[in-house]
Every structure is written in C-alpha cells, then in structure tokens.
Design a binder for these strands. Sequence first.
DNA 1: TAAGTTTTTTAGTCTTATCTAAAAAATATT
DNA 2: AATATTTTTTAGATAAGACTAAAAAACTTA
Lengths: 216, 216
Amino acid sequence: MYSLSEENYLKAIYHLQGETGEAVSTNAIADRMETKASSVTDMIKKLSEKTLVTYVKYQGVHLTEEGRLAALKVIRKHRLWEVFLVEKLQFTWDQVHAIAEQLEHIQSEQLIDRLNTFLGDPKFDPHGDPIPDKDGNFSEHHNKVLADLTDDDKGVCVGVKESDDQFLQYLNRHKIGIGSQITVLDKEEYDGSMLIQIAGKELFISGEIANNIYIN
Amino acid sequence: MYSLSEENYLKAIYHLQGETGEAVSTNAIADRMETKASSVTDMIKKLSEKTLVTYVKYQGVHLTEEGRLAALKVIRKHRLWEVFLVEKLQFTWDQVHAIAEQLEHIQSEQLIDRLNTFLGDPKFDPHGDPIPDKDGNFSEHHNKVLADLTDDDKGVCVGVKESDDQFLQYLNRHKIGIGSQITVLDKEEYDGSMLIQIAGKELFISGEIANNIYIN
DNA sequence: TAAGTTTTTTAGTCTTATCTAAAAAATATT
DNA sequence: AATATTTTTTAGATAAGACTAAAAAACTTA
C-alpha cells in the first residue's frame, strides 16, 4: 500500500482541504506536519505521480477521489483505534491521539473489519468525530455548538471541535465529557462567555470554549 | 527508542542464540531475516555501538543484557497482541503472526500495560509460547512433546514447537488446538509415527509432527 | 600445508524522506 | 508599474537501511 509518510501527508491534506475541497498550500501542509516546505514539494510530486493528488506548480494540491478514499481509510483506522483505547483500555480522550497515530498505519483489512465488529460498529470516536465506514461514507458531523445556546437552554455534549490535549485536559478537570448534560445559566452576549451548570457545579467558560463543544 | 529495523534484528538474534547464548553468525541472521549478509554486518556494527550486542569481526554476535531485555520487550508485545487477536478478534492461530509483526513495534509502555491487564495477564500466547513480563521474566517453557508419549498415554496440547502457517493450518484441519485432549492409540517405535485419538476421530501423524506438539 | 570453498566484511551505489540555501514565481505595497 | 515581500520550487546534501560486487578472513579437505 502506501508508506507511512505518504499516509500522513494524505491525512494532513484531507484535514486541510475542508468540506469545500479548496486547494491546499505547500506551507499549510508544512506547518501542520512540522516539516519544511521543500520536503512537502517533494512528497506532493510523488503523490501526484501516484494520482492521489492533482498538483499545479505554485497553486497547491487537491486530493483526487482515490486520494480522498486513501485518506479516509487512515482516518477510519485512527478513530476505531481511539474507540478501542478509550472503551476497552480505559484511556482518557486526551491520551489516545499519540498512540492512534501509530496504530493507524497497521496494514490489515481483516484486522480493521474485526476491530470494528468487536467495538460494535461505532459511528463516532471518543472526541465525537464521525468514523467513516469501509467505503468512506460517514454520518453527518455535529453542527450545533454550546455557543449556539442561550440562557436556560440545555444540551448534551456529543463531541469537540478541536481536540488538542490542553483543551481535553481542561474538559476532564471540569468533568465535561461525551454525554455530559450542560445547562446555560447566564450567557454574556458581548463576548459569548457563559456561566454553565455541569456535573452539579457551576462553571464559567469563555466564548471560545463554548464554540468548541458540540451539543445535541 | 529503537528503530523498527533494529527491533527486528534484536528479535532475530534473540531467537537464534537459543538458551545457551551461543554466538550468532552473520549468515544465520541474514537467512532468518531474508536479507543479505552485508546488510547484517552494517546493522550489527550499529547495534554494537549502541551496546545492544557484543561483536568481534568474523566471530558472530551475542546479545548484551541490555539487548536481551530490548528483544524481550518486543517479544512481549508480539505475544500479547497475538493473544488479543485470537481471544478478542477471533483470529485463528495461523493468522495472527503477520499482524503481530506490525503491532509489536507500537511504542507505548502504557498501552502494553493496559493491554496486558485487559487480556487478564496471560502467561502464554496462542501457540503456547510464554509471554515475558515487564521485566523480561517468564514461566518455564513446556518441554514434554507428544512424541514422548507411548501407547495408551493421554495428554492435553499446550503449545507447538514450530509455528509456521502450514503446520498450524494442518492442526486446524484436524481440530488440534490448545486444550485438545489427545490419546496415543498405537505408536510405531521405528519412526515415531503414531495413531492418535483427537476430537472423537482417529488420526495418523508422523514422528516429526508428534515432536512439534507440546503436551501436559 | 596448500588449494579450494565458504563466510564475512568492505566499498560503493540506490531509495526514501528529510534538510539547507538559493532561485524563481506569485503576491503585496507604495 | 516598480519594488519589496512572501511563497514555492529547485539543487544539492545527509541519514537510514538496503543492495551488488569484490576483497579478506576463516574454514575444509586432500
């Protein structure tokens, strides 16, 4: 199949290109992967020869359908392993990313099929991100965030928009996780900050945080 | 830690050096790893600089204690993952080796600790090979084989000496697995071949096969 | 022990994926 | 529009790990 490095580039490009499929710049890829632009150019040429991306010099890259599906396979593996780590091995949601970054490169269709079955064919990972199925289709992503609620509204946390460790650890400390019931007590319309009720306690959060928590 | 390639060399040397810790030749390593002797020489020098092996030109290598422990860590991971694949994902014992070869290189102490707990701290892998603990200690290996039994003796299969796919698939076809009750009906002393009772049926096996099945 | 064979090492090359430094193209600024 | 700045690409180098071919050392065997 594809090399570890190729898979990582495909994944990065997938995440950067967004819903709309805009062109992804060399520098954007270099930043995300913590590598140099010249390395990115090299790899892009390689991916382009393998018809995983379309590439016009100085104009960035787009994933081809083949490339998109390859990226989704890696993402599927990553998210299934995250479910495994949290549900079966009792890791917390801020601990699983680094390990899943390794596990996502294990090559075996059968392994992933069986892991999927073992986990009960889950639709979302521990951060609430949707898990693509074998063919690269996935349930629609959540779109309502805590910031959309107003005074006295209630919601259940179903995921997070950003999932860097700092943020997840903050949520852990305040007992916010998937399934948590949240009530908005007092929202400050000026900056979106709000006082909420969570796990029996009151907590004041910034608008930025409220915007990163998906709610249903 | 160590690179994937280094880990594979350490594992190969460990398996080749046997109980006694004899010197392992360059060619033996090359054969086992399906690579060229010149590549082995290169890697040996590298491992030697890292004090994982002792090496004298033209005289083969020995693992140092540090190297032995590093090899055992990889073997521990390999065997724990094999247990996972068989017990949790319903793979058969001939299917797990190739996948475990990949999984054994995942780096995370915590992952292995938790996997070990999740699996109930198993002492043997699906082929009956002992699983080293965190510190590299393991239960004594089985030593009685089916070939040691004689007419009317009974035993339970607890492992296999060789575990190549062909052999394991042969055992699968004849419903021989760990825990199988075996009775020797008629042993031919000349070549060690024997007629046995297994899974309610009679089966004739060669002395070579009888010598590869561990019994308790 | 001298010749022949096998094993092991050396020397040099290749591939993958990086990097730095410099050149080229695109974009922004006055 | 000309100049300055940023982005991207090219050119050349490096490191890991493998390879081939040839040299060197170690062993067989007569």
